[in-house]
Computed example of a mutant assay.
Amino acid sequence: MSKPTINDVAARAGVSKKTVSRVINNSPLLNAATRAKVETVIAELGYVPNPQARALATGRNFLIAMIHDNSNPELALAAQQGVFEAIRDTEYALVVRPIDRKAAGMEQELRHFLEVQRPAGVLLLPGVAEMESIVAACNQIGCAYVRMGATALDVPSQLVASNDRQAAADAVAYLVSLGHERIGLVAGPDDASVAQQRELGYLDAMADHDLDRGPALIAAGDFSFDSGVTAGNLLLEVSPRPTAIFAANDAMAAGVLHAAHKRGIKVPDQLSIVGFEDTAIAAHIWPPLTTVHVPVAVMACGAVFKMIYPDQAETLPAQFRLEMIARASTAPAAG
């Protein structure tokens, strides 16, 4: 059986196609009885409006495009859940566009995607949000956008941000409060703004407490579990060995935990470990990770609200607080 069309709805309800269109688009130019009759027929026939046709008819597109860097799939999944929450019971739909920021021709391909789809709004996740060329493309094409970042990247109406630098400093200060003085860092990739902010927070806290923050206590990672293992092995070979390690994300913190287990170093009795982001791995490994919770879904939901309710964008939250989650991977420094 063919799918019902707007003509089928109009014929069954005994109204014009234009009247059906007005019902679909919530036009105020209808009385309650006519609206109720058409809505009943739509439900009976199972009619679903064609979004492309609606966009042409109303001059509006109902797509929200989420652009993310493939390197952090957990972040993208959490953000996606937030978008779904924001568009629930609305006419909007989500289209997800993963990109490789380092790929040749990426910017041209993304520009073409935006020109063809003409989304009502574009959510730029961390990594992509820092790329001014993509922001410029959105402006030139006329796509509203909101950037999600670890620090303020734009005006409040086009921004949702966390203060990762302060949260990282607070996490290191927590380790200091437990009596740790020799604290290592597993840093993230140099080209990632979130990694830079978290490393700065580590350095801030170490300086505030007049603790050694030399290069021997800092190992580079790329946000992957394997890089956390490698960095953990490097830091655990330093003499004297760190009594605590702060990693710029949970996957690398889990890698440090693995490296410690392989060396017979007990966590948290001999080594405390702190991660960042509070992803699923943090609660599922043993011991579960002390970490910093980033409300990605809430931030993404707030970002989409700014796009679908532009008149309220200035007053909707732009800054989001991060929360320290203390679990079993940290303990007071051994006396």
Rank of each mutant, 00 (worst) to 15 (best):
L203N: 04
A103R: 11
H261M: 12
A136F: 03
G184K: 02
G275V: 04
Q81N: 12
L124K: 03
V135N: 03
V38D: 07
Y92R: 07
R97Y: 11
P126Y: 02
Q166F: 13
E130V: 06
Q319W: 08
Q81L: 13
F113G: 05
V274C: 04
V229K: 06
M252F: 03
K3T: 14
R35F: 07
A331E: 02
V274P: 00
I218D: 00
Q80W: 12
G214D: 04
I42E: 07
N139Y: 10
T315R: 13
G121R: 05
V172T: 03
I42W: 08
A326Q: 13
P49I: 07
L63M: 15
G149M: 05
L322C: 13
K3A: 15
H261R: 10
K266H: 12
T230P: 08
A76N: 09
Y92H: 09
I325E: 08
A280E: 14
A297R: 11
G255W: 03
A104M: 13
S329D: 02
A55R: 12
K37N: 13
P156A: 01
D226M: 09
G121I: 04
I183R: 05
P126D: 02
T90D: 03
M307H: 02
A331G: 01
R60M: 11
Y174T: 01
N139Q: 14
Q319S: 12
E39G: 09
A33E: 13
V267A: 00
E44N: 10
Q319R: 12
R97K: 15
L235N: 01
P49Y: 05
P126T: 02
V176H: 05
Y145L: 05
R327V: 05
S71I: 13
T58R: 13
P49H: 07
L257K: 08
V274G: 00
F113W: 15
R147N: 02
F225R: 10
A152G: 04
A168H: 04
V83C: 06
V128P: 00
V15F: 06
R182I: 05
A76I: 06
G142E: 07
V267C: 02
K262W: 08
V292T: 07
Q196P: 10
L124G: 00
V194E: 08
A283D: 10
M131H: 10
R147K: 12
S329C: 05
F305E: 11
T58Y: 15
V20K: 11
A11T: 14
N7E: 09
M66Y: 04
A297E: 08
F62N: 15
T330W: 06
G121C: 03
R182Q: 09
M324V: 06
S239H: 14
G228A: 02
R147P: 00
E44H: 09
F225G: 07
G105M: 13
A334D: 11
K17M: 12
A205V: 02
Q319G: 15
Y47I: 14
G228W: 01
A103Y: 08
H209C: 07
G188W: 01
A231W: 01
A331V: 02
N139F: 10
M307R: 04
T34L: 12
V160T: 07
A152N: 07
F320P: 01
E109W: 11
G255E: 02
R165G: 07
T58H: 15
H284N: 14
P215A: 00
G46I: 09
Q158H: 14
Q52F: 11
K306I: 00
V146N: 01
R241G: 06
